[in-house]
Simulated assay, not measured.
Amino acid sequence: MQDRRLAVLGAIVQDYVSTSEPVGSKSLLERHQLGVSAATIRNDMAALEEDGLIVAPHTSAGRIPTDAGYRLFVDRLLAIKPMSRAEQAAIAEFLSGAVDLDDVVDRTVRLLASLTRQVAVMQYPSLTRSDVRHIELVPVGEARLMLVLITTTGRVEQRTIEVAREAVADEDLVARLRAGINATASGRRLGEAAAALSVLPDSFAPSERDVVRRVIGALDEALIEEREERVVMAGTANLARRPGDFPATLEPVLDALEQHVVLLRLLSTAEGGQQHIAVRIGHENPVTGLQSTSMVTTGYGTGGDLVGGLGVLGPTRMDYPASMAAVRAVAAYVSALLTQ
């Protein structure tokens, strides 16, 4: 009996997501092979309503899922339906055309918004979770050096350093300094690299240490400087295409979406791994303005390390299996891109 009622709940969720109309026993029998009578379906619907899993939005025979009904439906999903090979190929082709990290992020949110018809959000890779990939040191002009820091997550930071002309002209010094910095910092977390580089000037001749300290000082700023985390969105207009899914107005939702600190908290990657999909439904959202929405998120990263989060946000009347599949697939491709 419990399994049958879960099947009825699943059918109600699927039909309501598809049609946006309250679902009645007659339509359930017509659209689904449940193998029972109309009276049995009505009894099951009454039991589901008593358990708070479905509700009548007005005085009609139709029912719609509650937040608790959606939650039980999501929790009982046996598996997330994989995307088709054509969809996977399209994702790979679209993301592989990115030219830099900014382009990767921009393409990711536009792709997710297109695939799910929801609002897509993505957190830029966190510097605190990034490693040093390479540091370049290039003479520019007669008395300047350009410092370029490249992280494993694709972030690029640049600094211009004023130094003595003699130092810029000394190609051997610049080459040794570049090699020493990379040997010390490459492969380390940014904070660890900054600490390790503090003793590098001691390995140079006294006459060379001033320029070394200037370069290390500029690199310290790039390595440990506190930065505001960034979130990028796409597809906000998708919310306006479904105004009936929001009880009163879109204003609280749009106000919440403008608060990037709120989105960063919701995109937190502290729990779970890259295969973990988090689903917050309706009143499970800690932000009042988003309690008429659902959010599907996951983490992405390099190797086993998570460096950021991405996901989609939309009304609770969401195609959860499809949204979960899209979020997981896109996160996997983004992670693969960052490790190249």
Results as ranks from 00 to 15, higher is better:
residue 211 V to K: 05
residue 144 R to Y: 14
residue 333 Y to K: 11
residue 147 L to T: 07
residue 74 V to D: 05
residue 179 A to V: 03
residue 308 G to F: 04
residue 165 R to D: 11
residue 118 Q to H: 09
residue 71 R to E: 05
residue 157 E to P: 01
residue 171 E to L: 03
residue 67 D to H: 10
residue 87 E to W: 08
residue 208 E to M: 06
residue 336 A to M: 07
residue 206 P to Y: 09
residue 275 Q to C: 01
residue 68 A to K: 13
residue 75 D to I: 01
residue 204 F to I: 11
residue 279 V to Y: 03
residue 298 T to W: 08
residue 13 V to Y: 09
residue 51 D to L: 12
residue 316 T to Q: 15
residue 102 D to Q: 14
residue 140 V to F: 11
residue 36 V to D: 06
residue 296 V to P: 06
residue 194 A to S: 15
residue 93 E to K: 11
residue 257 L to F: 10
residue 161 I to Q: 06
residue 50 E to V: 10
residue 293 T to P: 12
residue 248 A to C: 00
residue 247 P to C: 00
residue 285 N to M: 14
residue 126 S to G: 09
residue 178 R to K: 13
residue 62 G to K: 12
residue 224 I to Y: 00
residue 264 L to K: 06
residue 133 R to G: 03
residue 265 R to K: 11
residue 72 L to I: 14
residue 17 V to P: 10
residue 192 E to P: 00
residue 144 R to C: 07
residue 125 P to M: 09
residue 119 V to C: 07
residue 189 R to F: 13
residue 44 D to N: 09
residue 289 G to F: 09
residue 166 E to D: 12
residue 221 E to F: 10
residue 323 S to L: 04
residue 86 A to I: 09
residue 22 P to S: 14
residue 210 D to W: 13
residue 70 Y to T: 01
residue 307 V to M: 09
residue 335 S to C: 08
residue 275 Q to G: 02
residue 131 D to S: 12
residue 143 A to I: 00
residue 83 M to K: 05
residue 295 M to S: 09
residue 56 A to L: 09
residue 242 R to M: 11
residue 99 V to W: 11
residue 107 R to K: 14
residue 86 A to N: 06
residue 213 R to L: 08
residue 153 T to C: 08
residue 329 A to P: 00
residue 96 S to Y: 03
residue 25 S to Q: 04
residue 190 L to P: 03
residue 230 R to M: 11
residue 278 A to R: 13
residue 96 S to D: 14
residue 155 R to W: 03
residue 322 A to D: 12
residue 74 V to A: 06
residue 209 R to Y: 13
residue 42 R to M: 08
residue 36 V to C: 07
residue 116 T to G: 07
residue 129 R to T: 14
residue 137 L to Q: 07
residue 2 Q to M: 03
residue 331 A to F: 04
residue 270 A to E: 15
residue 90 A to F: 09
residue 189 R to M: 11
residue 56 A to R: 15
residue 172 D to T: 05
residue 83 M to Y: 00
